[in-house]
């Protein structure tokens, strides 16, 4: 079982994800025949957000601020907790720090489990907890 968590500067590009999943720790955790489901979630910066007055407004980017090193530590602890609670085989979470343009990815979560049901439940549980436990904030940069 492997839990991997990272905070990276800028968008979570496919190169960033590929690089993270190429680490020996992740590859060593490959469960092979036990795996029945791999679910991936990409959080993308959308163009329209609600501003402080409650009106929909266009963005150009989000600027993610992290409280370091606590953000990385909480993300890692959360990944380990979800891995164990939901009996996952592997989990990887990668979150952005700094500016991420509209349309780019700021968060990637990959869970691998024996069955689809626990993978989907774990994904939802991780994202809910992330919003409570991880000291990460987003500042809208309006168009």
């Amino acid at each position: 079982m492997t839990a991997l968590a990272h905070i990276v500067d800028g968008p979570v590009t496919s190169e960033v994800v590929t690089q993270a999943l190429a680490t020996p720790a992740w590859r060593a955790g490959r469960e092979g025949a036990h795996t029945g489901a791999i679910v991936r979630f990409d959080g993308v910066v959308r163009r329209m957000e609600v501003d402080a007055s409650g009106e929909g407004r266009a963005l150009v980017a989000l600027d993610y601020q992290t409280y370091d090193p606590m953000a990385d530590r909480e993300l890692t602890a959360l990944a380990a907790r979800i891995l164990e609670t939901h009996a996952l085989l592997r989990i990887a979470a990668i979150h952005s720090r700094g500016r991420v343009e509209v349309g780019a990815t700021s968060f990637v979560l990959i869970v691998e489990a024996a069955h689809r049901a626990e993978a989907l439940v774990a994904m939802e549980a991780f994202i809910d907890a992330l919003k409570v436990d991880a000291p990460i904030w987003k500042r809208p940069i309006w168009a």
Binding site: Y67, F107, K131, A134, P135, I136
Partner: peptide, 10 residues
């Protein structure tokens, strides 16, 4: 000391 409020990323 840091004040952490419920406003997350993702």
């Amino acid at each position: 000391l840091a004040l952490i409020a419920l406003v997350g990323g993702g």
